[in-house]
Amino acid sequence: MQGDRPLSDPYALDASEEWWTEHFEFLKEHGYLMRSRYHPGWKPSYNPKVLYGGMFAEDGQNSIHYAIMDALRISDSLVVAMKRVKISTGEDQIATLFSNDAHNSDPHNHCVRIIEVLPVPEGNEKILVMAWMREVMDPRFRTVGEAVQFLKEMVEGLQYMHQNNVAHRDCSMNNMAMEANAMYTRQYHPIRPKKRYDWSGRALHHSRTRCPPRYYLIDFGQSRMYDSSQLRPTEYALKSGGYTPPEGLADTPCDPFATDVFLLGNLMRTTFLDVQPGISGFEFLRPLVKDMVVDDPSKRPTMDEVVPRFSAIIDKVPWWKLRARAAKKDEFLLVKPFRAVYHVFWTASMMFLLKPAIPSPKPLH
């Protein structure tokens, strides 16, 4: 659905963006204000005839996905993400399940919180409103302990879903996100996150160790909820994050919870262990990851087994390893010693401030 822009201006509104413009007043009435680009009658601040002119203008920044739009909540200027979902998919039911009062206060629940669900006037879609989030790896992890906190929250979050009889079925890195507002001294721009929201300069940020973010499982479009009183049905595995589980390659249906375990283990393997360039310092995870990604789904541990094993492993990792630099394995050799020396002084400052090696955010109220 992306595309359909005039050749004279590659930064003009495309067909999917025009849908959002058509719903500008509807969203404003519900308390959400989109950027000037999506205001009715928008005229670009840049010259459309100048090649790539829109690249350097705030209102030239198009949406990242046809179904997702950013906006400001008028009441408090919170930047939110609005996602169009078809009623027939049932995604809104699973997403809102983990956002209700019973689940919202549970510290093991790391599913994205839905602020509001807006029925679209046309009647066949809804808009899910949630806080705007960043990619997990942007900015990159500074220490091993910072990455451990991310993995801890994802392991707990997937266990929580399974304990509530829900399989994610697509739990790869692209369906995990970071709520990082605490890290940023000023609000960053949703489309160009290295810049400030008002386009006045770079968006400066603290480290995750100093101001811990929160991590969330997102996108429940492929998720399934099961009846706990009945035998869980088998499902055909989906390709997720560029990888197809062994049962998917064999085109054999299996327990979807076992497939979730593979996908999470594969994320650990491909992000931190084996795929180049990889990140140094995570070999302690290999025994657990090896069991999570075995070809036979019946031989994989359940998430109720993964969580205590993960915790036991982390408890044995010495503090100095957790505070070690999470350096890319292919890092340029000439810069390594300089970065290492800087990291020593930075680590000393974090210890002086009594920041823990595994930085966890404050509990949600």
Rank of each mutant, 00 (worst) to 15 (best):
Q159I: 00
G201S: 04
F150H: 10
N164M: 06
V166E: 03
R208D: 11
S229V: 03
V155P: 05
S172K: 08
S200Y: 06
N175W: 02
K152Y: 10
W132T: 00
A180I: 02
D227L: 02
M178P: 08
D170S: 10
R196S: 10
E146P: 05
D227H: 09
E179G: 11
Q222Y: 13
H205T: 08
D170A: 14
N174F: 14
G145W: 00
E179W: 10
R142P: 00
R196C: 13
Y184T: 03
H189T: 07
D170L: 09
E125G: 01
D170Q: 10
H168R: 11
L128M: 04
M173C: 10
R202Y: 14
P193C: 04
D227Y: 07
Y216H: 11
N174D: 12
A180T: 06
R224W: 08
A180E: 08
D198R: 07
Y160E: 09
R142Q: 14
M173Y: 09
A203I: 03
V166Q: 01
S200V: 09
R210E: 15
P139T: 02
V155G: 03
S229W: 13
Q149Y: 09
H205P: 05
P193I: 02
P213V: 02
M176Q: 13
M137L: 15
G123L: 01
V144M: 07
Q163I: 02
Q187S: 14
E153T: 09
E125M: 01
C171W: 05
R142G: 08
Y188G: 09
P139K: 03
T143C: 05
M154Y: 02
H189W: 08
L217I: 02
E125R: 10
E153S: 14
H168S: 09
Q230Y: 12
M161V: 02
G201Y: 02
V136H: 08
P213I: 00
H168F: 05
R214M: 08
N124L: 06
Q159V: 00
M225E: 11
V144Q: 06
F220E: 07
P212A: 03
P121D: 13
S207N: 08
S228W: 12
I191T: 12
Q163D: 15
P139M: 01
N174A: 15
P190H: 08
V166C: 09
G221I: 01
R186C: 14
M173K: 14
R214P: 05
P212E: 07
E122M: 02
G201C: 07
Y197A: 07
N181F: 10
H168K: 10
M154W: 00
N174L: 12
G221M: 04
K195E: 13
E179Y: 13
A182Y: 06
K195R: 14
L231V: 15
R169I: 10
K194Y: 15
Y197N: 08
R192S: 11
